[in-house]
Amino acid sequence: MPNMKASLQRTLWISRVTFLEAVRQRFFAFLLVLSAAMVLSSVSFRVFDFGHGELKFIADFGFGGMFFFGSVLAVVMTAQLFFSEMDNKTALTLLAKPLSRTEFLLGKFCGAWAVLGVFVIVLASLLGLVLWAREAELIALAEQSGKIPATFSAAGLAEFVLLQWLRLGVVTAIVLAISALARTFLFAVVVGSLAVVAGQLQWIAQDAVLKPSDSLLYEGFLWVSCRLIPNLQQFNIGDALVLGSAGVAPGAVAEVALSGLLYVTAYLCVGSLVFRRREI
């Protein structure tokens, strides 16, 4: 147990410095400001709502910003945090200490994930504020006209934030596993981005698995793809959670969260195994 405690403490120290390094980056500040501006400006663009409800349009704007900029941040920032240690050779100093490579990688993950948590919470808070303000206006208008007002669920928004944070955690773990293998920052960013796209399209492979095929090789390929690549679409149930556009089965959020945690664990294990063999 003392060893476990010491190991957790070392991981915590690495993640703390990783967090400090990340929040000092201009890239993080730039994306946060850009995403916040996107969420706040959604009210001005609601005339382009394409016939959808106003709250849905505003929420979609916020979800889009969280997804896109969150993914960019998760891929680029994570790779940058890893390669800055390698290229600047600070990893030499750290790994010459009684610090295991698994602790180092786990610390990097926790630090990057904490930054992504800040990113998601800030954006969700702004989105919640915009939705709350507009909801109040819409309720007043609905009372005058005698219609049923549109509302949003703050608790659903909180659940959605948790799922988005997990989704970004999965992306971070994948990028770290790729970085542990990659020799260059660019390679890690490109392959990491492709992994995100593959994760968004993974449902296609899932659909194809259900259809019968004559080729065992094809079926095997699909089966492996479905398990290797996480289905990132499963985290995008913001409409259902926040606006109640569709029913969410009991336990569905917990199931998605568990799936996300399993992928995070699996990719961190793979990354750790690869990193242990890497020559610094």
Binding site: L20, E21, T90, L92, T93, A96
Partner: peptide
């Protein structure tokens, strides 16, 4: 072994913000 060893690498670089 590493617990009892100290190491200064060549041209050391540390986190500038610390």
């Amino acid at each position: 072994a590493r617990r009892r060893t100290g190491f200064l690498p060549e041209a050391p670089y540390f986190h500038k913000f610390l």
